[in-house]
C-alpha cells in the first residue's frame, strides 16, 4: 500500500490528525534538507511535503519564493532531489510528497518523472498549477504506477466542482485555507470551519488537509478539528532561515515543528 494511504488509515484508526510540514529542498542546502526530514519524522511529522524549487512559483508568497530562489542558486535540481530521497529511504519510511510546478515535470519528461519519483521513494506529487482538467495522460499514468497526484480544493471551488475534484482525488485533498498565496497570516478566514466541513462532505472517504497561511499551534489545533490534517510551510521555512546561524539549527527547527504540532 502507498505510504500516504497507509498513514491516513493508521491515523484514522487511532482517531488522530495528520501534521504535514513543508520544506524547500535545497534550502539552505540539500544535506540540511535531509537532516531536517529525519528530525521532523523523529518529532512526530506524519507526512512531509518536499518543495522542488521552481523559478516562478505563482502560488507562493515571499518566504517560499525566496527559499526557492536560494535553493536554485545552490544548484538544486529535480535529479539531485531524487538522489537525496533515494538516500533517505535507507533510513526512513515517512510518506513523502513532492510539491512542484508543472514545467519542471514537463521538462524532465512526465513518464520519466513518474518512474524516477517512485524509484527514489516519493509517494505522491502536489502540483499547484496543474488542475485536473490538464495533462490527463500524466495523471492517468501516475495513478496506474502508484504515484498519488494530490488535488486541491479552494474557498472559491463551487460545490459542483468539489464533486468533480473528489471523484478524481487520491491520497488526500489539499484544501487551500484562504484565497491567496502561501505565507503566514495572523488570522485565518472565519468561514474556514464551515468550508472545511463542506469539503469533507464532498470528499467522502478521502482525507482533507488544510494549508496556506497556517503558522501557529493554535491555528493548527483549531483547523484540525474540522479536517484530517494540517499543512504548514512558510512558517517553517521562515524558521529555517532564522536558524541558519543557530548552534544547532536542526534542533531549533525541530523544536519549532514539534510546538506547532502540539
Amino acid at each position: 500500500m502507498n505510504r500516504i494511504d497507509s498513514k491516513f488509515k493508521e491515523l484514522r484508526a487511532a482517531g488522530k490528525k495528520a501534521f504535514m510540514p513543508f520544506l524547500t529542498a535545497g534550502y539552505p542546502s540539500l544535506p540540511m534538507t535531509g537532516k531536517l526530514i529525519l528530525e521532523f519524522e523523529k518529532r512526530g511529522a506524519d507526512v512531509i511535503e518536499l518543495g522542488i524549487p521552481f523559478s516562478d512559483p505563482i502560488a507562493d508568497g515571499p518566504v517560499i519564493q525566496q527559499s526557492s530562489y536560494e535553493a536554485i542558486k545552490n544548484g538544486t535540481t529535480l535529479k539531485k532531489v531524487f538522489g537525496l530521497v533515494r538516500r533517505l529511504r535507507e533510513e526512513t519510511q515517512i510518506p513523502l510528497a513532492a510539491m512542484t510546478y508543472f514545467n519542471l515535470i514537463l521538462n524532465y519528461g512526465p513518464t520519466r518523472f513518474i518512474k524516477d519519483a517512485l524509484a527514489a521513494g516519493f509517494d505522491g506529487v502536489i502540483i499547484p498549477d496543474l488542475p485536473p482538467e490538464e495533462e490527463g495522460e500524466f495523471s492517468k499514468e501516475a495513478r496506474k504506477k502508484g504515484l498519488k497526484v494530490i488535488l486541491f480544493m479552494a474557498p472559491t471551488t463551487s460545490r459542483e466542482r468539489a464533486g468533480f475534484i473528489a471523484r478524481r482525488a487520491e491520497g488526500f485533498i489539499y484544501f487551500v485555507s484562504l484565497t491567496g498565496v502561501t505565507g503566514a497570516r495572523r488570522e485565518l478566514p472565519r468561514e474556514l470551519g464551515f468550508q472545511l466541513r463542506a469539503a469533507k462532505k464532498a470528499a467522502g472517504d478521502i482525507a482533507v488537509c488544510a494549508g496556506f497561511g497556517v503558522s501557529t499551534p493554535q491555528q493548527v489545533k483549531a483547523i484540525s478539528a474540522f479536517c484530517d490534517g494540517v499543512i504548514v510551510g512558510s512558517a517553517i521555512v521562515k524558521k529555517i532561515s532564522e536558524s541558519i546561524d543557530a548552534s544547532d539549527p536542526v534542533k531549533a527547527v525541530g523544536d519549532f515543528m514539534a510546538r506547532l504540532k502540539g
Binding site: 488542475p131 479552494a154 472559491t156
Partner: peptide
C-alpha cells in the same frame, strides 16, 4: 473548448482561480 491550440494553451492555474 478547453482552451487548447493543438498541444498548446490550456489553464495551468491554481485551483483558487479556476472558478474566476
Amino acid at each position: 473548448k478547453h482552451g487548447h491550440f493543438g498541444i498548446f494553451g490550456g489553464k495551468y492555474m491554481p485551483e483558487t482561480l479556476m472558478g474566476a
